[in-house]
Design a protein around this nucleic acid. Structure first.
Length: 564
RNA sequence: CGGGGCGUGGCGCAGCUCGGUAGCGCGUUGCACUGGGGGUGCAGAGGUCACAGGUUCAAAUCCUGUCGCCCCGACCA
């Protein structure tokens, strides 16, 4: 390919409010153009990178025995009504009406479509297992797109769906995808951390995220010092410190005038926070519930949501708190048996707590569980933080920011049951199919790769996903001899299937060098009057400040050697 | 959805307080020079100042509203 045909145009200046490094570089290097908030065009250069990423993914998915399909972006709303997600999906499904007034949705993901496909074509255990995948555009009307390609509204995703007869089969499919993803990311030159994740609104149980550690990421993960444990914030567990005392004291009421926060209470009573039982009141699908946790910890709302099985969980408004009979600042589950409560298990490994007396200006001292209050639900609802003990006992957790590029889930029966995707097993019985789903954000992968691979001169992608492998720079192409030699090398490399860009633009050498580093070509070949007498070809890699000189006959091998 | 900011030639910005000739850098066009890290000179082209309404003799500038975009937060299969 020749640069003159490529719309290759880099920018010196980009808007000062584009903060994110990958966003800035994607714009500057001419990879993308923004069309609207969270909606981008890929320019020729960027499109080539994306193409290479797709091909790596395809190769690896196919190698793992997955079948590529293509499901529609535009779908009837009825499909989503079947699964119940027409109303519950967040952000709400983008939709429009066709000329017959039928509502069509723009798909944000394809669990329903995939399930419906399999439902029609799988009837026997003999048809299973099967994993289908596609690389397809999705649309999610994010409330706030951000960070260039990191969080967009229209995006391309590789999504795969596995279908199995039993748990063992699902485990195997999941494991296959785990390995496939490792190979994909490694081929893209990315070092990913695999973390335990919450499976969230999509349903299902086990789930893992592939996260690239980067400060610009919006995912928080917690890692043990030996890196054997890693989980994202929603999921992360930790070993809770035991503060229980042998001697259980009698409960007594104390006056705490205007002491209505944990901080004030801790100061006023001169007790550490781990001696306070904190009560947080939530609205869970319309029901007021009270969550009780030791005050040295905070409630993890994802864990609370999961333990309650609630769809919509939020902190109760002060009005709701009062209507439920609580006094803000003095609430507790004591003597409030009509209100559902959830107790964090930290409460069990402590004793003689101070807690609200449900009476203004009063608290109870020496409150103990289960003597003074009870709950049917006791479990882990605490949020892990940096410095807390890793659950595998290998020291203190470390918090890091990261970009979630891939996510794999065991869905279980969530979609197959509700949508009637069944098969007949060996004994002739009808059973629902076990599903898994597996996603990789394509554009986000590119952005993440740039976050991880850049320097002060620009993008420095690995050859596997760089727009071109070789940038052939001719200096002063008006010199016929220089131009002829460029054409000759260009032919040589092209014929040998080396992905070469011939920068044939009539520009000063400085501009071409700057562009070469900015766009991030891994290898540069320079032809000029200066090195013309030299029989060997001048070649320089992006990461090396010095050039090498290689004979034409060895050039192809040399390059292939460099990029593998 | 809450908070903050911005909208002025293709791109990046100044001008707005204090109303009166629309400016700078980059890019771009032509010519010449130059040719190993965003080169030099000369000469050009290019803007209903986001949109709508209002105030005024006069609005990029003041007022009201709308739209768009960015950043922080909430949210994020």
């Amino acid at each position: 390919m020749k640069a003159s045909n490529l719309l290759l145009k880099t920018l010196r200046d980009i808007p000062s409010d584009a903060e994110n490094i990958s966003h800035r570089l994607l714009l500057r290097a001419g990879y993308v153009q923004q069309v609207a908030a969270g909606i981008f065009s890929l320019l020729p250069i960027g499109n080539r990178s994306i193409f290479k990423i797709r091909e790596i993914i395809r190769d690896e998915m196919n190698l793992s025995g997955c079948a590529e399909v293509n499901m529609p972006v535009i779908q009837p709303k009825e499909l989503w009504e079947e699964s119940g997600r027409a109303e519950t999906f967040f952000p709400p499904l983008a939709n429009f009406k066709d000329k017959r007034e039928r509502t069509l949705v723009i798909a944000p993901t394809h669990e329903e479509t995939a399930t419906a496909m399999i439902r029609s074509f799988v009837s026997s255990y003999r048809d299973l297992p099967v994993t289908i995948y596609q690389i397809q555009t999705k649309f999610r009307d994010e409330t706030r797109p951000r960070g260039g390609l990191l969080r967009v509204r229209e995006f391309e995703m590789k999504d795969a769906y596995s279908f199995d007869v039993d748990e063992k089969g699902l485990d195997k499919s999941f494991e296959t995808m785990l390995k496939t993803y490792k190979r994909i990311f490694s081929k893209c030159g990315l070092e990913m951390v695999i973390v335990d994740a919450d499976s969230g609104g999509i349903g299902g149980k086990e789930s893992k995220e592939f996260v690239l550690i980067a400060d610009s990421g919006d995912d928080t993960i917690l890692i043990s010092p030996d890196e054997s444990y890693a989980a994202n914030l929603e999921k992360a567990e930790f070993i809770k410190t035991d503060y229980s005392e042998d001697k259980i004291l009698d409960k007594e009421i104390i006056e705490t005038k205007n002491i209505n926060t944990i901080e004030k209470l801790s100061d006023f009573c001169k007790i550490p926070k781990n001696k306070i039982a904190k009560s947080v009141i939530y609205n869970s699908d319309g029901e007021i519930i009270i969550a009780v946790i030791r005050a040295d910890y905070d409630v993890n709302e994802t864990k609370l949501r999961n333990i309650l099985g609630s769809k919509d969980l939020r902190i109760a408004s002060s009005e709701e708190v009062i209507n439920a009979g609580f006094i803000p600042g003095y609430a507790s589950p004591i003597d409030r048996t009509s209100i559902k409560s959830v107790i964090d298990d930290s409460i069990e490994i402590g004793s003689n707590y101070t807690a609200g007396a449900n009476k203004e200006h009063f608290h109870f001292k020496n409150v103990n569980y289960p003597r003074d209050f009870r709950s049917e639900i006791v479990g882990d609802i605490a949020e892990a933080k940096e410095g807390f003990l890793s659950p595998n006992n290998s020291g203190k957790l470390i918090a890091k920011k990261g970009i979630e590029v891939g996510h794999i889930f065991k869905l279980g029966y969530t979609y197959s049951e509700i949508m009637g995707a069944d098969f007949t097993d060996k004994t002739g019985e009808t059973r629902p199919i076990l599903m898994g789903c597996y996603g990789i954000g394509i554009g986000r992968l590119l952005a993440a790769a740039i976050e991880a691979n850049h320097d002060e001169n620009g993008i420095n992608l690995p050859a596997s996903i760089s727009p071109f492998t070789v940038n052939l720079i001719g200096i002063n192409l008006e010199e016929k001899k220089v131009n002829d030699k460029c054409e000759k090398i260009y032919d040589l490399l092209s014929k040998n299937h080396i992905d070469v860009l011939f920068d044939n633009r009539d520009l000063p050498p400085g501009v071409k060098f700057k562009d070469s580093d900015l766009v991030g070509f891994p290898i540069r070949i320079i032809i000029s009057k200066k090195n013309f007498q030299e029989t060997n070809i001048e070649i320089k890699s992006r990461n090396d400040s010095n050039s090498s000189y290689i004979s034409e006959s060895k050039l192809v091998d040399f390059i292939n050697n460099l990029i593998q």
